[in-house]
């Protein structure tokens, strides 16, 4: 069973088509990235997947439950950190958290146990009595994450979970995401931080102008993007002039003892480097590859 399934979601606001036939399937236990530029249709898609917004056409399921026909059952399995949402500013962190816990139908004792454990995990326990409006942006974001987790969801939608967080807090959230995946939680991650998506996600869908334009694992997307990988080699001695002929199948540069090969697929040039070193009696001091950054891939896919 797919943890999240969307079939042909379509939504129009006035004359503007916000989402145009989006279909996607997220497997259980997967971290699925959902990327796109501003106004691409990410938030509208997420709102339709959570059942807040009804599509003009299409279907969506969370853990097998139709989010429009059985919204409560679908959302019982779901935790959400919506991008465009806040905790209640006039309620304390504790009250916000226990309020959401009760909305999952949990008994008071269970809610309080989980709230305490989440506040401790996210380093918010000392601020539990502070009103949300008096928390820093980072603390508020962590509170929203705690509110998404209090129902112990099987599926988690995280819309910009690390936006505005300092480096340490962002790392904590990323580490939490990976821990949750280990526990079998399915995560749909929306972020503008494409490098974060590239490093965390098992698969990624890129949406642009309301349509999904590419889906695949980060490696698949790298290959599909046809962007170049750099193979950088340092030998123990200067490279001779005849190396140019040896590596002429690829664009390359030679500078003293260093060789830089620009290729789409690094395996063949690496074999050639080893062969060249053997023939010339050189030792390889350092060799490494630099695949294209995920930001480059993203820009290429959306046609930027």
């Amino acid at each position: 069973m797919n943890a999240v399934e969307a079939v042909d979601l379509y939504k129009k606001f006035g004359d503007v088509v916000a989402v145009n036939g989006v279909s996607l399937k997220v497997d259980e236990g997967e971290i699925f990235g959902f990327l796109g530029p501003n106004g691409a249709g990410k938030t509208t898609t997420i709102r339709m997947l959570t059942g807040i917004l009804r599509p003009d056409r299409g279907e969506a399921r969370i853990m097998g439950y139709d989010v429009y026909r059985e919204p409560v059952k679908a959302r019982m399995s779901l935790g959400v950190v919506p991008e465009e949402a806040n905790p209640y500013p006039d309620l304390s962190a504790w009250d916000n958290l226990t309020l959401v816990g009760r909305l999952y139908g949990l008994p008071r004792r269970t809610v309080e146990e989980r709230a305490l454990s989440l506040l401790t995990l996210l380093g918010l326990n000392d601020a539990r009595g502070r009103k949300a409006k008096n928390l820093s942006k980072g603390m508020r974001q962590k509170l929203l994450v705690a509110m998404a987790l209090i129902g112990e969801p099987k599926v988690l939608f995280l819309d910009e979970p690390t936006a505005g967080l300092d480096v340490l807090s962002a790392r904590k959230i990323r580490s939490l995401i990976l821990d949750l995946r280990k526990k079998g939680v399915t995560i749909l991650l929306t972020t503008h931080n494409v490098e974060e998506a590239g490093s965390l996600c098992d698969r990624i869908a890129i949406i642009n102008n309301g349509r999904i334009v590419e889906t695949g694992s980060p490696d698949d997307l790298r290959i599909k993007s046809e962007l170049y990988t750099y193979v950088s080699v340092t030998f123990d001695r200067e490279v001779e002039e005849d190396a140019k002929q040896f590596f002429n199948a690829w664009e390359h540069r030679i500078q003293n003892s260093r060789l830089l090969i620009i290729c789409r697929e690094p395996a063949a040039p690496i074999v050639k480097v080893v062969e060249y070193a053997k023939v010339k009696g050189l030792n390889i001091v350092d060799i490494h590859t630099s695949p294209p950054s995920f930001e480059e891939i993203f820009v290429k896919v959306i046609g930027g």
Partner: peptide
Amino acid sequence: RQRTLEMLLSRPVT
């Protein structure tokens, strides 16, 4: 306006 309604609506309530 406070963006709390969407937070509420994304929970298991109608």
